[in-house]
Design a protein around this nucleic acid. Sequence first.
DNA 1: AAACAAACAGTCAACCCTGACTGTATATTT
DNA 2: AAATATACAGTCAGGGTTGACTGTTTGTTT
Lengths: 199, 199
Amino acid sequence: MSQATRVPQEQRTRAMRTRLLDATVELLAERGFAGTSTTLVSQRAGVSRGAQLHHFPAKNDLVVAAVEHITEARGEALKEAAGALPEGGQRTRHVLAMLAEQVTSPVFAAALELWVAARTDEQLAAAVGPLEQRIGRELHRATVELLDVDESKPGVRELVQATLDLVRGLALADTITDDAARRERILDHWAEVLERELR
Amino acid sequence: MSQATRVPQEQRTRAMRTRLLDATVELLAERGFAGTSTTLVSQRAGVSRGAQLHHFPAKNDLVVAAVEHITEARGEALKEAAGALPEGGQRTRHVLAMLAEQVTSPVFAAALELWVAARTDEQLAAAVGPLEQRIGRELHRATVELLDVDESKPGVRELVQATLDLVRGLALADTITDDAARRERILDHWAEVLERELR
DNA sequence: AAACAAACAGTCAACCCTGACTGTATATTT
DNA sequence: AAATATACAGTCAGGGTTGACTGTTTGTTT
């Protein structure tokens, strides 16, 4: 039992952390920030309370780590979605659809919970702020690339940013009323505007 | 003391409720939904716990009423701002500035807290959903009027809605990063686009 | 003016959540 | 193979929040 080292501690640690963070994201999306008690997380993750507190001494530690976890998850999802993007005339509309899909996922809901929680929690804000700024920049760069537009042209940068903010706004509205039809109509027209204004 | 009825109960009731709801909105903006304990509200309002529980038996009752209170407050603010709106060439840009100002106020922060809380609270959602839909319609109508555009023209309706969602998105981004400069630049360009697209 | 109802004040018990503590098992190092 | 450090398990006390309870004042009705 001692010479045959089957499971290195590093892997065990990573697996344990991943389970905890996945559970945290799930609960954030399902029950919100306040509803995500550390006890629930340990239960959902199938991890003992002691083990949880070993990896994340306080709830803030757990949640901050979950933000980073969310970031990676969002990055992966974006890359995957970008790869499956069709070429052709409707490309702008497809890019918008992809962005909209991104922000209607549970991952966005979890992130939203963190943004709002961070608004009134300095500690959290200190961790979430820089992270979101980084993600924002990456998303902007990716969007410019996907849309294949020339950012040196005046106004283009602002319109791309407006597009991302619009999508966020639509996602926010979606959390309460949830009518996809309205969103689709708006994005249809927005795509047309972008086609005219960006070229 | 008994024949001179100075303060009717109806007024007293209304004053008491107003104080409680104002305090609730303040605390929602300052401390978030979870941080808004009913005890804090009664303290902030200068109202005894018993009086508070007389008017609002449970926290949900208080918060739902606060939503309605927020609605009225937003309506008033909108009317005031609309009255002070300058005429002339830059009108579109001024309307955008007005909308942006609306959603960067503490009232918006309080509303945001409620939206997010309602996302994982059925009871709250049942009260917040219809209310927000009503406000949304009113705001849309007011914006169409302020921008003085023809809604029968195809695409106009969607662009106005997109504008409102964009502003919401900007407001959401503002709660974490708070850079007004970026917002102004985006709205500058969006105003130009709207001028071209809506006419 | 008396009876009644509503508004209001203060206290408190039950509940849940966080994080600290003690003990055990597993992995790594020498 | 022994020693040591880390990972993990279960329990529990402290703090805070909700809403129920009792008593008092003020307004209304007859």
